[in-house]
Design a protein around this nucleic acid. Sequence first.
DNA 1: TAATCTGTTGCAAACGTTTGCCGAATGGAG
DNA 2: CTCCATTCGGCAAACGTTTGCAACAGATTA
Lengths: 341, 341
Amino acid sequence: MAVTIRDVAKASGVHISTVSRTFSAPHLVNPETRTRVLATAEELGYRPNRAARALITGRTHNIGLIVADIANPFFPPMIKAAETHARRRDYHVFVADTDEDPVVETDLVRALAKQVDGILLCSPRMSDDQIEQLRREVPLVVVNRLIDGLPAVVMDVGAGARSAVRHLVGLGHRHLVYLSGPRGSWTNREIRKAAGAAARSGGAELTVLGPHQPISSAGADAAETVLATGATAVLAYNDLMAVGLLQSLQDRGVAVPERVSVVGFDDIATSALVRPTLTTVANPTAAAGRAAVDMLLQQGDDGATGQVSLRTDLVIRNSTGPGPYAPAGATTAEVAAYAKE
Amino acid sequence: MAVTIRDVAKASGVHISTVSRTFSAPHLVNPETRTRVLATAEELGYRPNRAARALITGRTHNIGLIVADIANPFFPPMIKAAETHARRRDYHVFVADTDEDPVVETDLVRALAKQVDGILLCSPRMSDDQIEQLRREVPLVVVNRLIDGLPAVVMDVGAGARSAVRHLVGLGHRHLVYLSGPRGSWTNREIRKAAGAAARSGGAELTVLGPHQPISSAGADAAETVLATGATAVLAYNDLMAVGLLQSLQDRGVAVPERVSVVGFDDIATSALVRPTLTTVANPTAAAGRAAVDMLLQQGDDGATGQVSLRTDLVIRNSTGPGPYAPAGATTAEVAAYAKE
DNA sequence: TAATCTGTTGCAAACGTTTGCCGAATGGAG
DNA sequence: CTCCATTCGGCAAACGTTTGCAACAGATTA
């Protein structure tokens, strides 16, 4: 059916090993022979069978990319960047969605293991132990979570949370709320810790609400509780929740940012499209995808297990404004400038 | 290194073929032997190597999913649904992004061909000829495009466009604009044709603008031109463009829907989050993903090349309202009801 | 009792590659 | 002219499976 190395060999009058070498070790074959083989290969439409090659070399030139939820707008840019980057290095990418289920995660890693050279585990929800176990079965790079001894790419959400809190405190807010994300999320823990510390050192109070599903309806549902705390500023686990909260507050006639300021995380596309536009901590998700791919592909060479932390950036838009303790008469821009350390 | 069928055979004292059959044809092996083999397999942590199996059976149990742009919010729900559906049937999914480039599309199909049992081609930008050619090299299902003789899953965007136009005409609009999408898009052509016909039969004028990139900034950039036409209602190729337009109109102080009504396509998540919320034609993208997978997997059995068209639904929200020729005093809801045939 | 059938297992070839090894041919050095 | 090194290409084994065929035992039938 399909044209194989054998067909090319026959058609060009050489042994199959010569054809093989023409493709995988060109310097070992006479330039003349090589061009002849390449010509007939082209003519016949021959393409090497990667699966067969993998069988003997042990390298599949495939990688796996496992995420909690493809439809969560946080992931697509990362998937896209990782796929493009991998393809440029001649790797194909399996993408799988776990629906935030740790059991599915484990099964998926095992199922994919034999078919890939390594797996990118994005925002995994399983325990550290499970991940370390899997790491023994297949090369792994963890994204959005730090585990001792495991290669990882994370966004520095701690720093992001700190600048967000400083921004809010600088604007004159003294009582903040943190809208937690899902249980088991490393990112969530980091943000909570960093925000708590930053609030304390800024002389502000931080009320933690949650856990919540990382979706907009959860943000909307939290509006009532948020208002009940009497806080004047909210930091949300992600933009989806922040946007949900934003809309819900507006529906209740609560002015943003006049009465409540809102800050999100991720800077998904929607955040610049809602009104008021959302102040948020931008994560370099595309860069993270690329870095993770690089790390995975280098893993074979040395055994070094790097851990990189990528810079996050506070993007100040219109959902944050002066709070009750703001310097009199200051505008958002002026006060915000002060927050820039 | 990894545990193979041979290890299991040795450990349980049978021939490798018996182990093989234990997994791929259990009824051919004695229940006693079978349980013994299964036990040692479990104990050793054996997992069949799909690549090796594929080599001999010719079935990889993988499928390819090629989309124009993973980061376009239209696709993730479809990717997610397709992946989940495929996995339930024990298939793994390669995802790849072409960045709207027809050349990359072709290369990708060829590169993936040997490694998959078939490919889902979503919103392809290449010519019909090229697709028909590729179809000879690997089983294909085309999504969002209709080509004679090729299995396909499409959304009935024509019907969607018709209801959108009827809705607008019913509201009293007589001059509409269609904001075209990208060149080469089948969907775009369908919408344009259907909208044109519906407008004519409703006694309204339709001005076509474009082509445009299917992104929000293109919608925003078109605002000026749209206003210059004097039209009172706009149908956009997709929600991204519609939302961009919405914001741009607001920034110019043009009230929506009071002065201009806007309708989008796709019903992406953002559409319900912007204000005014967007009236749009909802596409069953998840269902399309599942249907396409089913169609691809059945293709082997019979040679039947089905073509299914999925229902679309006009979702009326707040970006559309009465136009200049609306029955006096009518509210949006009342007038809209009239449009429901 | 012989012949036939059924259920279970082993044997070996095959899938499409890669790669270590060996021999042939070539060319330069001595 | 001989010897050695180098370059090139063929041979065959290997990767981890599946599967048609044959062998065998025991059960059933005539």
